[in-house]
Write a protein that binds this DNA or RNA. Structure first.
Lengths: 242, 242
DNA sequence: CAGGCACAAACTGCATGCACTTGCCTTGCG
DNA sequence: CGCAAGGCAAGTGCATGCAGTTTGTGCCTG
């Protein structure tokens, strides 16, 4: 029984959405795990109603899967769907990088470069956790630098859905240096205003991450896709891992 | 009033989501319009609970906007955010077209070509409504042809959010012929397997539609509350972080 | 006469209650 | 011993009730 009042902002439903989403994105709740309304309600000391609404919203954005009359589970992502998300991510990042190369203000470019250089030290000392923070920040800058709110939203949403699978690559040796060098290519292209090169570099960067993570998919035949209706993933990203 | 929708599939909440989303996407409910829980509940002859849940889900996917303790309204899209959606749409369609050019099966290519040719007649006789059906079908084929479920989802979602604004262009004279010709460029590129050309053609196609529709945005807070003007630069139209 | 101020109506947000569905386990029968 | 039917517990889905908040209106005051 650790967290009760985790976040005090917003309505109870909002808090539930954040709390549950956070647990899914961070991997604390794993794909396929059952999400019992009563248990969650008891766990967070609220009634079932806000929990229900939260599950409905999470289902709408694709983080959980709801079977009518049969409860909700953390969305199971098939190998195939995971691959499609990584590929989408590569394309979305490529778009952001392209736009960033064309549209970032002088101030944005400066910040990007400065922060990027600052993170170089972390690579040398092998500060994984701290680097991760800079890494998240780096990508966020790219998304914002595109100066396109909707692309930003789509990218952030996709990124957060990939988060549980991305953490897999933490342990790969030499990843930090490699990541930094890839970032460096992107930054250089952006500073030059070379949209095409920035796009390509960003796409390649994600593709490499993808390969390192793909192993962790559950290639369950149960598909999370194949559903009707408007399904619009919209999820702002959660706080960087502390 | 168009009578209640007695769709028997799914739960009451699902029906509400579909019913309300439908009214928003088709423009029957307009941006800024208030969505009163009690009224909707009475209107559809259910209790407030499923209506509430539906509004929550629609809010999660961005179709409606919720102000805590102050009710829900159909999401108001600023000129700027609309532009960002159209631009995103162009990029997403470009991706789909590129992938389609590379990945469509022989059968998919054949169907695409056949249907496309079939719609040529409709242009000649000026059958707007019928052409619209083929147009939708055409784009859907592109999205599916990309063989990437997540990109498909993102694209469909974005498209549905743009639907209310897209309908504006119906009335432009000569649009049918122009649209068909643009489709033709895309089809030709896909048949050739020329990904780059297909992508460019698709992007241009959307861009043109965008110009025809942009006029219909509600960029000033005239019909809506002026309080919406308080916004942070980049997160102008974003929903509060989940 | 303008500008609050307070009260009231309306509405949202959450809790609770109840009916119905599902899955499991028992029990009876072949 | 296997299997099917029935009943039971657990859990979901929706309705309703109540408390807290917001908003509109009329009155009071300067």
């Amino acid at each position: 029984m650790s967290g009760k009042r985790l976040v005090r902002s917003g309505t109870t439903v909002d808090q539930m959405v954040r709390a549950i989403a956070d647990r899914i994105v961070t991997g604390y709740l794993r794909p396929g795990e059952k999400l019992d309304e009563s248990s969650l309600a008891a766990r967070f000391e609220v009634s079932r109603t806000p929990v229900r609404e939260a599950l409905g919203q999470l289902s709408a954005i694709g983080l959980v899967e709801r079977r009518p009359n049969r409860g909700a589970i953390v969305a199971v992502v098939t190998q195939e769907y995971l691959a499609s998300m990584f590929e989408s991510m590569a394309e979305l990042e490529a778009i952001c990088a392209r736009f960033s190369a064309e549209r970032m203000t002088a101030a944005e470019r400066r910040s990007l470069e400065i922060e990027h250089q600052a993170s170089a030290r972390l690579v040398q000392v092998g500060a994984e956790e701290d680097y991760e923070y800079f890494n998240t920040e780096f990508h966020s800058r790219l998304y914002r630098g595109a100066h396109n709110t909707h692309i930003h939203d789509l990218t952030v949403a996709t990124r957060s859905r990939l988060a549980p699978f991305r953490r897999a690559q933490f342990m790969l040796p030499g990843r930090l240096a490699k990541s930094w060098q890839e970032h460096d290519v992107i930054v250089t292209a952006i500073m030059r205003g070379d949209a095409a090169a920035a796009g390509k570099a960003a796409r390649d960067h994600v593709s490499i991450v993808s390969e390192a993570s793909a192993v962790f998919a559950a290639d369950d035949p149960k598909s999370v896709k194949a559903r009707h209706g408007v399904k619009v993933p919209h999820l702002a990203q959660s706080r960087p891992p502390v």
